[in-house]
Write a protein that binds this DNA or RNA. Structure first.
Lengths: 133, 133
DNA sequence: CTAGTTGCAAAGAGTTTGCATGGCG
DNA sequence: CGCCATGCAAACTCTTTGCAACTAG
């Protein structure tokens, strides 16, 4: 969608690739880069990047929308994602499990899941550990 | 959370139970009931109902938050939900598949999924059919 | 040079809040 | 009758848009 590679776009891309597994709102990103990119440029670029499939837009449990980087990123494509409600980190689901799910849904419910838009919520291993301690 | 059962609350509950499987935004609901409940009452009641677990708040793919009824509702509790990106309907996942997923994630990834907050996105059987025709 | 992109500020959309009035129990 | 909930409007937050200035190619 964009035709020029601008300085701002580079900064944004760089910032996102430095925070690959965090869920960040457009506003958070805009504020973090406040001195370097205007808010409107952040919004416009995120929208472009979403259209290009370089970034995914999801919602965090209770609140506002969030974005996070994903394309260009090694193991993201074609994987299902899980987000920890506690620490906010994103995880990639093991293929064997994802396969079972995708096939099961397809065969038994005739539902074709969209891997890139689906995010499972729960508590990750790390955070589960903490609770038990 | 609420201490009184008001006329408005009844109307809202009734409206939601009449639209059990649709994803409705707070605004849509408020507009549909415009003549009967004020916008602020809709928002306040939805927030209360969410706290009580009578309603779930989720996000539809690209956009804003949505709500939909779920407690009091027979087969909702303890089930994973799937939402069709095309028609917007909500489906309940068959137990056998859900079990596999929940156990698989727990054992292999140590991730405990939150069934009530997770919604899988994709295309449902009905809509898949249409595409093929 | 020329069109796409930025920055700013103003406009929108959705949601929240303060306060007086009204209604449930 | 007392307290909670409602309604309205104003306040907020997040996001989008118009337009002149800037800049990548």
């Amino acid at each position: 969608m964009p035709k020029y590679i601008t300085k701002q776009r580079k900064i944004l891309t760089e910032y996102l690739s430095e925070h690959p597994d965090e869920s960040l709102s457009a506003n958070q990103i805009a504020e973090a880069l406040e001195s370097k990119i205007s808010k409107s440029a952040v919004y416009r670029n995120l929208a472009d990047m979403e259209a290009e499939g370089k970034v995914r837009k999801t919602a965090q449990g209770s609140g506002r929308e969030v974005y996070y980087q994903y394309t260009d990123n090694e193991h993201c494509r074609g994987h299902l994602h899980m987000s920890c409600k506690k620490c906010g980190k994103t995880y990639h689901m093991e293929d064997s499990i994802a396969e079972l799910l995708v096939e099961g849904l397809s065969e038994k419910e005739n539902f074709s899941i969209d891997k890139s838009e689906t995010v499972l919520y729960g508590i990750c291993g790390e955070c589960n550990k903490e609770v038990e301690e």
